[in-house]
């Protein structure tokens, strides 16, 4: 019996890292947006920064989703 431990190990590692990274990024994006709302209410310059950061996070997540669709199609 040949068990492909290497493949199992890489599935484990990749799933763990990608999931945590994506969830982390997306959460940062959400937090960034909610910060931006409160910051712009006070009229501070940090609102722009928070919003840019949030959109960057969302863009990375969107890229990951696109890559997922690419994996499904190809």
């Amino acid at each position: 019996m040949k068990i492909d431990w290497a493949a199992l190990g890489s599935v484990f590692g990749v799933s763990l890292v990608v999931t945590v990274a994506l969830v982390g990024l997306f959460t940062l994006g959400i937090v960034g947006l909610s910060k931006q709302e409160s910051a712009s209410a006070q009229g501070g310059g940090s609102a722009v920064l928070a919003r840019t950061g949030a959109y960057a996070c969302f863009a990375l997540c969107a890229a990951a989703v696109s890559y997922g669709i690419y994996l499904i199609v190809v």
Binding site: D4, A7, L8, S10, V11, V14, S15, V18, T19, L22, V23, G68, L71, I72
Partner: peptide
């Protein structure tokens, strides 16, 4: 997590 595991597993051969 589910989406990642499903995609990773079917493309890493396990």
């Amino acid at each position: 997590s589910a989406a990642t595991v499903i995609l990773a597993s079917s493309h890493l051969g396990f």
